[in-house]
């Protein structure tokens, strides 16, 4: 097969890979723009994450605070904790969350995942035409995927930060109300930060998991299919 002037300048595979590009800065810019344009909708999606992360952070940090009080060896601290509703077996050195707490947290995260998947599925579906158009203009599957993952990561970050703050502050306030200043005085800072980090990480992961499948499906579509899908 004779390759004439249209494709004969075509270099080897590596060359083509480099010839179709979307610089990271540009993808970041496009993602931010898409987020800004659909600001209200994104707020709702992010709220789902905020609530889930806040709840997780609240539960984790509450038990961190209780552990702090327990390890302070303050007179009467065991009594105080038991009164506040923590299960304390004899000789325990840390306050774990009860089985019931864990179940509630897991359930809340499950519900949140479903909510996020739903929201991201909607957001990808309503943009099929945009995706198809981009692919007609020469976008690779990976560009489409990257744009959606970036958006989800930014949503996840916002949700995780807000949720972590909200949950952490909530737990601290609740601790202060229940145990007075002792809660703040004996706060194990490292553990609280670790819990915050964990909650934020879970939030990010949820957001990315939610968007991954729909974005992958969208990215792999033939351009015509994508443009027909919406009509």
């Amino acid at each position: 097969m004779a390759k004439t002037d249209i494709l004969d300048k075509k270099p080897g595979d590596a060359g083509i890979r480099k010839q179709i590009v979307l610089p990271f800065r540009k993808s970041l810019q496009i993602s931010l723009q898409s987020l800004r344009v659909r600001f209200f909708r994104n707020c709702v999606t992010v709220m789902t994450l905020v609530l889930a992360v806040a709840f997780l952070a609240f539960v984790l940090i509450s038990s961190d605070l209780a552990t702090g009080i327990l390890n302070s060896n303050m007179p009467g601290c065991r009594m105080m904790l038991s009164k506040a509703g923590f299960d304390l077996p004899e000789g325990a050195t840390s306050v774990g969350s009860s089985a019931k707490d864990r179940w509630i947290v897991i359930l809340s995260l499950l519900v949140c995942t479903v909510g996020i998947v739903n929201a991201q599925l909607m957001s990808v579906t309503e943009r099929f035409r945009e995706i198809g158009t981009m692919k007609c203009l020469g976008a690779l599957d990976s560009f489409v995927l990257r744009l959606f993952l970036l958006e989800a990561a930014m949503q996840g970050l916002a949700g995780a930060i807000l949720g972590g703050l909200l949950g952490g502050l909530g737990a601290l306030l609740a601790g202060l109300l229940r145990f007075g200043l002792a809660a703040a005085m004996h706060m194990p800072l490292a553990q609280v930060l670790a819990s915050l980090g964990l909650a934020a990480l879970v939030g990010m992961a949820l957001s990315l998991i939610g968007v991954f499948y729909p974005a992958l499906v969208a990215a792999r579509m033939q351009p015509v299919e994508a443009m027909r899908a919406e009509e």
Partner: peptide, 18 residues
């Protein structure tokens, strides 16, 4: 231009469209 587009891989096809 005498190139069978069914033979192109995803990158080459994107390049063609682009």
């Amino acid at each position: 231009d005498e190139v069978d587009i069914a033979q192109l891989d995803a990158y080459e096809l994107a390049w063609l469209r682009n």
